[in-house]
Design a protein around this nucleic acid. Structure first.
Length: 123
DNA sequence: AACTTGACGAGGG
DNA sequence: CCCCTCGCCAAGT
C-alpha cells in the first residue's frame, strides 16, 4: 500500500534545498523557486516557507521578489537588513531598493537564458 | 474542521 | 511607472 506522502522530506525542506544552491552574489525569486519545485508550490507558500529558514543553513537573504527588491522590510527585523547583506555579497541596489534581476538572478544548471535553447530540463 | 494570514506574482487602470 | 485586485497554498488559531 502506498498509503500517502511519498515524500518524507518536508514541504519546506525542498525549498531550502534549492535556496542552498544559490551562489554568493546571486539571487532567485520566490516565483522562480516555486516554478522549479512544480505543482503544489506557489510564490506565496515559498515565501511562507522561507520565513522559517535557518539563517545558518539556508541563505534566505538571496531570495527576493520579482521586482528585484527585498520583502523583509515589514518583518521584525530593523529595516532592509536583507538588502544590506546582499550588498555585502556584491549585489548592487538602486535608490528604490531594487537590483537588476537580469544581472543577479541565478538559475540551476541548464537553465540559461538562451534564445535558441529551451530549458525543458531542470536540475 | 473552518477561517484568516502571509518574506508573492501577474494583470488591469 | 505606481496602485489596486485576484489567485495561490501551507500553517497557525
Amino acid at each position: 500500500m502506498e498509503d500517502k506522502q511519498v515524500n518524507d522530506k518536508k514541504y519546506r525542506e525542498r525549498v531550502y534545498e534549492v535556496v542552498r544552491q544559490i551562489p554568493v552574489g546571486r539571487v532567485m525569486t520566490y516565483g522562480q523557486i516555486a516554478a522549479i519545485l512544480g505543482a503544489g508550490y506557489t510564490p506565496r507558500t515559498v515565501g511562507f516557507v522561507m520565513h522559517g529558514a535557518d539563517t545558518k543553513e539556508t541563505p534566505w537573504q538571496r531570495v527576493i521578489n520579482s521586482q528585484g527588491a527585498c520583502s523583509t522590510g515589514r518583518m521584525t527585523v530593523p529595516v532592509n537588513l536583507q538588502q544590506q547583506i546582499l550588498e555585502a555579497e556584491g549585489v548592487v541596489f538602486d535608490a528604490k531598493g531594487r537590483c537588476d534581476l537580469m544581472i543577479y538572478q541565478w538559475s540551476p544548471e541548464g537553465f540559461e537564458e538562451k534564445d535558441d535553447e529551451q530549458p525543458s530540463l531542470f536540475w
